[in-house]
Amino acid sequence: MKVIELNKNALSSNDADAEILRGELKEKGIFLINLMSAAGSGKTTLISRTITDLREREPGLEIGVMEADIASDVDAAAIEALGAKSIQVHTGGCCHMDAVMTRESLEAFGAFEGSPRIIFLENVGNLICPAEFDTGAHLKVMILSLPEGDDKPLKYPLMFAESDALIITKMDAAPYFDFDIDAACRRAKALNPDIAVFPVSAKTRDGMQEWEAWLLEKAEAL
């Protein structure tokens, strides 16, 4: 037997697949957003509100949502009701999406045919594994909801370090929780100075405009 030195990252095959997928999507003018958060942070509510608002701004805009979940299709039904295309991706017990799974889902979705133009990948609900696997998305956005606490950047640093934007949801509940928004921002920025922070309430619509304007700007810059 001979020894062959590799010195490769164990996830290098995924990173390579992700880079190829990102390029192919860009060529077709498809903007993919990897949305990550813990379970129950309000991902589906935020996406629903965002879809409604974006379609108000740009009536013809085609939006798709890929819901990655261990099981069930409750979320997909809620999205379809808004006129967006949706597909449920069951990860078969896997706690995250990787580039190959994302490609297969996009193919099942018919996304490579050119429409929809903006696609949200709603990743599996947890703050650990999704941060480690590049899906091929152009933008990584994470959600932290108020009830989860302002200490989360200290507990799940990789997620905050990897994300392009942090959306703090359920701001309407601020009077009931001891969430220090300045501390949360400071801790997130210490890990990632470039992270964009958007405190929002999908219920009262406070802060939604800033997030949506930023998102459209990124989509146009693709």
């Binding site: 590799l6 706690c95 480690e132």
Partner: peptide, 28 residues
């Protein structure tokens, strides 16, 4: 099971290496 996700990619990298280098058996 985040370990499983990494193993899947590890196996893929090793299979690709075996194909490129013409290996029939990887012992470790």
């Amino acid at each position: 099971m985040h370990e499983m996700g990494i193993i899947i990619h590890l196996a893929k990298t090793l299979e690709d290496t075996a194909r490129e280098e013409g290996l029939v058996r990887i012992g470790s």
